[in-house]
């Protein structure tokens, strides 16, 4: 008999009183294993639920625009589409959200019987106060973006980035991130946006979306006009 066998016998002898305990353990172990798996599943599911459902709800808060605005109706009245109000100035800079000066020609007096229209004329037009619009697409201050380069040179339309807001009859609530303070539209509203997936070009406006589109359209991520790459092309 080899030394190994002797040793094995010794081990067997030493373990024999514990055999019954071991058997019990294995028996109980099945139950515990089930429980363990159950706990894993509970933790896993709960955290997925929290991460995917609860967290986004907690992360964002909601504000209403100061007054409502009917894009669709105004689009019918103007000749030049979006650029009738969201125009380029003569120096090429983009005016963004219209100022009161563009509204007062028509809105010196209350038009129609909308409650919002009455508030607009009384609180803003007659007092000469600008409407503090909440801007869905506002990027952080460190992001440089030229509308002229994209709309006038690259001939992109507004919908590509801003979606079909021009067809809306009322303004959606403005959701903003409680941590960063920026609009939810930058990160996207759909859960899949969190995975970097999107259906429409206007679903998200994060840095990767800029880069992806540049790659698709021009074959490179760099700026078209300067042909330069790197952080400071966009972050100034």
């Amino acid at each position: 008999m080899s030394i190994v066998d002797e040793k094995a016998k010794e081990v067997d002898a030493a373990d024999s009183p514990a055999e019954s305990h071991c058997a019990t353990s294995v028996d109980d172990g099945n139950g515990i294993a089930g429980l363990t798996i159950l706990f894993f599943i509970v933790g896993f599911t709960a955290s997925l639920f929290v991460g995917w459902i609860v967290f986004p709800k907690l992360l964002y808060s909601e504000k209403q625009q100061p007054i409502d605005f009917n894009h669709a109706m105004h689009m019918e009245l103007v000749d030049n589409g979006c650029e009738s109000c969201h125009f380029f100035r003569t120096d090429g800079t983009y005016s963004g959200v219209p100022k009161l000066a563009q509204c007062i020609d028509c809105h010196q007096e209350v038009q129609g019987d909308s409650e919002h229209e009455a508030v607009f004329v009384e609180e803003y037009v007659s007092k000469g106060r600008e409407v503090p619009w909440l801007i869905y697409s506002r990027q952080p201050d460190c992001v440089f973006f030229s509308h002229a380069a994209h709309v006038q040179l690259a001939k992109m339309d507004c919908v590509t980035c801003h979606g079909h807001i021009g067809e809306s009859t009322s303004l959606k609530p403005y959701e903003y991130n409680r941590i960063t303070g920026y609009s939810r539209d930058i990160w996207g509203k759909e859960l899949k946006n969190y995975l970097g997936l999107k259906t429409n070009t206007y679903d998200r406006m994060k840095m990767n979306d800029c880069a992806y589109c540049h790659l698709e359209e021009t074959g490179r991520k760099s700026s078209v006009s300067t042909e330069k790459d790197g952080c400071f092309v966009c972050h100034k």
Partner: peptide, 27 residues
């Protein structure tokens, strides 16, 4: 059946795995 240390450990691993697969930490 008794809830022991391993169960909680498992719960923790489940939470960690679930959280890691959710947008929470990354976002």
């Amino acid at each position: 059946m008794k809830i022991d240390r391993r169960c909680f450990l498992s719960l923790g691993i489940g939470v960690a795995a679930g959280t890691a697969l959710s947008p929470l930490p990354w976002k």
